[in-house]
């Protein structure tokens, strides 16, 4: 139980251990610690950036939504206007078409009336002549009385 040469042996061992730790153990472990620290810091920074970007994106999304709403409202207004226009136009067209149809129907009716009138006139002329022949009892020369006949016929027309 006294100081002896063990001391020297222990000192050498100690020196070797310290040297080895300094050379091969401390640097790699410490470097990896530092590197991980950096990684974590970077990760946190990235997360923060991401958060900021989310906020920005949300703001942007709100603007975009607002714009889209305005735009859609505009489109709806335009569409309503256009629809009204179309309705008006088709009403107008229908009216024109109706008028046209009425006009052509009227023309046809007039024509038919004309024809009927013409037919009646002929018939009446013939009947009148026959009646006159009966009344007068004498022959009426068609060629002699053409003028009279024409007058009557005209009065009927």
């Amino acid at each position: 139980m006294s100081i002896n040469a063990t001391l020297i042996g222990q000192m050498i061992t100690f020196a070797l251990l310290v040297w080895f730790t300094m050379k091969y153990i401390w640097p790699p472990l410490f470097d990896s610690l530092e590197e991980r620290k950096k990684k974590i810091a970077d990760g946190l920074a990235a997360a923060e950036r991401g958060q900021e970007q989310i906020i920005l994106a949300e703001k942007k999304a709100i603007t975009v939504l607002k714009e889209a709403k305005e735009r859609s409202a505009e489109i709806v207004t335009l569409a309503q206007k256009r629809a009204n226009e179309i309705v008006e136009e088709s009403k107008h067209n229908a009216k024109l078409e109706g008028d046209r149809l009425i006009l052509s129907a009227k023309a046809q009716v007039d024509q038919e009336i004309q024809q009927a009138r013409e037919g009646l006139r002929q018939e009446i002329t013939t009947l009148a002549l026959a009646a006159a022949q009966q009344i007068l009892g004498a022959e009426i020369d068609k060629s002699k009385h053409q003028d009279i006949l024409n007058k009557v016929s005209n009065q009927l027309g």
Binding site: S2, I3, T6, L7, G9, M11, V18
Partner: peptide
């Protein structure tokens, strides 16, 4: 127990 030997503790402290 090496640290119950004065040689071991003194070796370190003298270093």
């Amino acid at each position: 127990v090496p640290s119950t030997d004065l040689n071991a503790t003194f070796a370190m402290s003298i270093s």
